[in-house]
Design a protein around this nucleic acid. Structure first.
Lengths: 149, 149
DNA sequence: AATTAAGATGTATTCAGGATGTATGTTTAT
DNA sequence: ATAAACATACATCCTGAATACATCTTAATT
């Protein structure tokens, strides 16, 4: 269970842009800063542009900037749009599911609930939150409800 | 972001055993039932035995059975023990982390909180729950707290 | 004792997908 | 024109999951 480097880099690009509000920043600058592959970042940036997170401009003095205010971008939203495969179990995808008991299996719903909880925690933080503060690690979510039929 | 087939199969084996309380069941029977690779299941079963979830017996009339009551086995506990890599982000593993900002980066804590929420939801269901009932999918966990410093 | 049915274990192979690189476009300020 | 930037399409490498195969050990049956 991992997020791809793609998602990781996407978040880092947005974090970097958030910390340099409004300024045009080049891919090279970001790649140098994080010491990661520029070639990889090129694609990350391309997709961030396509998905409306950043504005890109070509040519001299071109670069990237956030397309929306950092406080309006939710971490969960970004993860949902960049992570290529959120099918935690085979049975999540009806097109490829082979499990013979998936119709009557309650595991699917349980894992799906867990995934929902995961994303909803991420939805409670904005890019602006990330860019400024640090957060405590909380060890317990006792208030998460278990819903039985 | 996926769980491995390993974890998926592990859960299915335990579910199957739970539904046949006490009986000795062979790997072949389970593989045939789910129509999955027997060879793969062999290793899954081996690890489940090593980790104390099942009792295995060799020889004629050998097979598997649950080592503990189904109602004492938490789904989250199993996922934690079978999923080989729970490092959602590169920076989760200090040994391999390369991210230059991980010291001051709050993203790590946020994603970790989300993962904790994920596992804690799974911890609220036992194998016995799975084996009998079906559960509703819940779409909102508004009560998950955001903890700020 | 021999046989057979089961799991135990180690090794090998296949394959998909993530991570990365290369090359060539296209745009725009100077 | 030229240089500096992103756009885009392929190509390649590599890890690890998924699976197969072969051989061993154990234990019940005959």
């Amino acid at each position: 269970m991992r997020l791809t480097m793609y998602t990781d880099y996407s978040l880092r690009v947005l974090l970097y842009l958030a910390s340099r509000k409004g300024e045009n920043v080049t891919i090279t600058e970001i790649a140098d800063f994080y010491r990661i592959s520029r070639n990889h970042l090129v694609k990350v940036v391309h997709n961030l542009g396509r998905d409306g997170y950043i504005l890109t401009s070509r040519g001299r003095h071109g670069g990237l900037k956030l397309a929306r205010p950092a406080k309006e971008i939710l971490v969960g939203e970004l993860v949902r749009s960049t992570e290529p495969d959120l099918d935690l179990l085979e049975c999540f995808n009806p097109a490829t599911n082979q499990c013979v008991i998936s119709n009557s299996c309650s595991l699917k719903a349980v894992v799906f609930n867990a995934q929902t909880a995961f994303l909803e925690v991420l939805d409670q933080y904005t890019l602006a939150d990330m860019a400024k503060g640090s957060y405590k690690t909380i060890s317990s979510f006792k208030s998460i409800p278990v819903v039985r039929n």
